[in-house]
């Protein structure tokens, strides 16, 4: 007991206090991560219990010559990049509008968040119906407006399928940006804009010189979170297209999901996931470096 009392006076005490959290992190984060990585070097097909064993880089080599992997990789990049750019732009627009404190903006602020409240699954089914080639309201509207000659099967044409899913995702995800950017905007002193008005800077210059730089940290954090979310979640695409037509909307997360739960090939699916994991790590590290959000704003 006395030894404990003495120990508590030393600086080792704090390491001792950290042990429980360290154990928890190891158990909940490190172990599953490493286990998942380990599977990617093994043959693990549930329907072939006899084939279990270490296979080294077999899955990674197979991936190299798997055309679907490359298509999925390309689609993932296009899907995530386009969706994030759209969501960020829409989110910024919405946040700027909401930041004006005009009458009614409070109700509008809640309305604008609605898409984000919808679970992916619900949003997916809703849009599947809205864009339906036979019943879809969107088709109806476009035909009435004279934009389309006849109803279009958006998800049946590889030229429009990916674009359509990107729009749905943008609709679903932009409130996330709107919310975070609004919080960021609230933190920008009004005086900066008034100074800019006196200095004669127009709206574009204000956006470029004040708003965006002041939101840099928020934007960087939001983009990273959203990219991770988009890369990892196949649910919207699973509902809207299932990766089709052909492989036009196949992305890595969906491919990994299908490999694991349709083919029961957990080894290859884990290898796909490890590639996603590493790609995301590289992206996040590079992005943080480029946007220099780790240092003080004045140092760059």
């Amino acid at each position: 007991m006395r030894a404990l009392g003495e120990l508590s006076e030393t600086r080792y005490w704090m390491y001792l206090l950290l042990l429980p959290s360290l154990a928890l992190i190891l158990l909940v984060i490190a172990y599953p991560t490493l286990y998942g990585m380990a599977i990617s070097f093994r043959e693990m097909r549930l329907t072939r219990p006899g084939l279990d064993g270490w296979v080294g880089f077999k899955h990674y080599l197979a991936m190299w010559s798997d055309p679907v992997f490359w298509i999925a990789l390309k689609n993932t990049v296009v899907w995530v990049a386009a969706a994030v750019v759209l969501e960020l732009s829409l989110g910024l627009l919405a946040a700027t509008a909401l930041n004006r404190d005009l009458p009614g903006t409070k109700i509008f602020a809640v309305l604008i968040l609605l898409p984000y409240f919808l679970p992916n699954v619900v949003a997916g089914h809703m849009w599947a119906l809205l864009l339906d080639p036979r019943l879809g309201v969107i088709n109806d509207l476009l035909v009435r407006l004279g934009v389309l000659q006849a109803y279009k099967a958006w998800f049946a044409d590889p030229n429009t399928a990916l674009a359509a899913t990107i729009l749905v995702e943008a609709w679903h995800g932009f409130p996330f940006f709107a919310l975070l950017l609004l919080a960021g905007l609230k933190g920008i002193p009004e005086d900066l804009y008034r100074a800019a008005a006196v200095d004669g800077a127009g709206l574009a210059a204000q956006l470029r010189l004040i708003t965006l730089p002041m939101l840099k940290t928020v934007i960087a954090a939001a983009v990273i979170l959203r990219v991770i979310g988009l890369v990892n979640s196949p649910d919207l695409l699973l509902i809207l297209t299932g990766g089709g037509p052909g492989d036009a909307t196949q992305v890595l997360s969906l491919y990994a999901f299908q490999t694991a739960y349709k083919e029961f090939n957990f080894g290859y699916a884990s290898a796909l996931s490890v590639v996603m994991f590493v790609t995301l790590m590289i992206f996040a590290a590079g992005y943080i470096r480029i946007s220099r959000i780790t240092k003080g704003q004045g140092d760059d």
Partner: peptide
């Protein structure tokens, strides 16, 4: 043709 000095100084942080 005025110039203004603000309470929070309102300096552009990136410049």
């Amino acid at each position: 043709n005025i110039a203004m000095v603000f309470q929070s100084y309102a300096l552009y942080p990136t410049m």
